[in-house]
C-alpha cells in the first residue's frame, strides 16, 4: 500500500519536473519546427542564474527568505529573455529557410558553445543553493515524508501547462499562432507577421527552459553538464507525446514519470532502460508519437 502511493506521488513529482523541462522544447518545435538541442543549455543557464542570484541574496544575510522565490523566478525570466533574444535575433532568424535537420545541427553547435560559455561565466564549482528548498518544510503521509517544495512543483507545472493551453486555445494571439502551426505559408499570405511570432515563440521557449532550470536549482547541486543530461530526457518525453503538442508533453511526462517510478520501486535494475524503452515502444506503435499529427504525403 505504502509502495503504491509512494509510486503515485513520486511519479507525479517526477512527471511534473519532466513536463517543466519538456514544455519549452515542444513549444519551439510546434511553432518553428526546430528540434532545439540547446534546450538543455537554457535549462542550465536558468539553473545557474537562479542559484547564483539566490546564493548572493542569502549571503547578504538580512532579507526575508521568502523573497528568494521571487528572485528565482526573476532570474529565470531575465536569463531566458536575454539568451532567447540573443540567439534568435543574432543567429536563428537568418537560418529559417534551412533544412529541419540542419537546424538540429545548428542548435547542437549552440549547445557546445553555451556549455562552455556557462562554464566561463559561472565557473565549475557546483552551486548549492538549498534555502528555497528547505524553507518550505516537509509533509508526512503515513510513514513517508515529502519535501513541500517538490509538491509545490506539481502545482507550478499544472499552472504552466494550463497557461500554455489557455494562451493557445483561448486568446486571439494563440489562434493566430495555431494558424502558423497549421500552415506557415497560408498564414503569411493572410498577413500574419510570422517573423515576430517566431521570435516571440523562441523567447517563450527559452524562458520556459530557464524556468525549469531555476526551479530545479534549489533541489540539486548546480554543476557543469546538467544541461546535457536533461536534453535526451526532454527529447524522449516530447517524442513520446508527439513533437509540438502541449497535451502530448503532459501525457508523455506522466507516462515516463510514472513508469520510471514503478521501475524504481519494483525493479530498480531496469531503471536505466525505462525512458528509452518507453520511447521505442511508443514510436514502434505510433511513429508520430501519441499526440503527433499525421502528415499528409506531399507529391
Amino acid at each position: 500500500m505504502t509502495t503504491l502511493y509512494a509510486i503515485l506521488i513520486d511519479g507525479m513529482i517526477y512527471a511534473s519536473w519532466l513536463f517543466l523541462v519538456a514544455a519549452g522544447l515542444t513549444v519551439i518545435y510546434g511553432v518553428m519546427r526546430i528540434l532545439n538541442m540547446a534546450h538543455g543549455s537554457f535549462y542550465s543557464i536558468g539553473a545557474y542564474s537562479g542559484a547564483s542570484l539566490v546564493g548572493w541574496y542569502f549571503a547578504g544575510g538580512d532579507g526575508a527568505p521568502y523573497w528568494s522565490y521571487l528572485l528565482l523566478l526573476g532570474a529565470a525570466l531575465a536569463a531566458g529573455l536575454f539568451i532567447g533574444l540573443l540567439v534568435e535575433q543574432g543567429l536563428l532568424q537568418f537560418m529559417y529557410k534551412r533544412d529541419e535537420i540542419l537546424m538540429v545541427i545548428i542548435t547542437y553547435a549552440l549547445l557546445l558553445i553555451l556549455e562552455d560559455a556557462t562554464k566561463l561565466i559561472f565557473g565549475v564549482d557546483p552551486y548549492f543553493t538549498y534555502q528555497p528548498y528547505s524553507l518550505l518544510g516537509r509533509s508526512s503521509f503515513g510513514e513517508l515524508t515529502f519535501a513541500n517544495y517538490d509538491l509545490a512543483l506539481i502545482a507550478v507545472s499544472v499552472l504552466i501547462g494550463a497557461a500554455c493551453w489557455l494562451v493557445l486555445n483561448r486568446t486571439n494571439r494563440g489562434k493566430v499562432l495555431r494558424a502558423v502551426i497549421q500552415d506557415r505559408e497560408i498564414a503569411v499570405a493572410m498577413g500574419v507577421n510570422v517573423k515576430l511570432m517566431f521570435a516571440a515563440t523562441f523567447v517563450v521557449g527559452t524562458t520556459l527552459g530557464a524556468l525549469a532550470g531555476a526551479l530545479t536549482a534549489p533541489a540539486i547541486s548546480v554543476s557543469p553538464g546538467i544541461g546535457v543530461e536533461v536534453i535526451v530526457l526532454a527529447f524522449a518525453v516530447v517524442v513520446v507525446g508527439g513533437l509540438g503538442s502541449i497535451e502530448g508533453a503532459i501525457v508523455g511526462a506522466l507516462l515516463v514519470g510514472l513508469t520510471r517510478s514503478v521501475a524504481v520501486h519494483l525493479a530498480p535494475q531496469i531503471e536505466l532502460f525505462v525512458i528509452y524503452g518507453v520511447m521505442s515502444l511508443v514510436l514502434a506503435v505510433r511513429p508520430q508519437g501519441l499526440f503527433g499529427r499525421n502528415l499528409a504525403r506531399k507529391i
Binding site: 506521488i9 517526477y14 513517508l144 531503471e271 536505466l272
Partner: peptide
Amino acid sequence: ATEQLPKLFQGQYGAEISAISV
C-alpha cells in the same frame, strides 16, 4: 533492504528516497 541504481548525473532522487524509506 533495497539496491537503487539511478543513472549518473540524474540529480533527482525522489523515487529512490521513497523506495529506501519504505
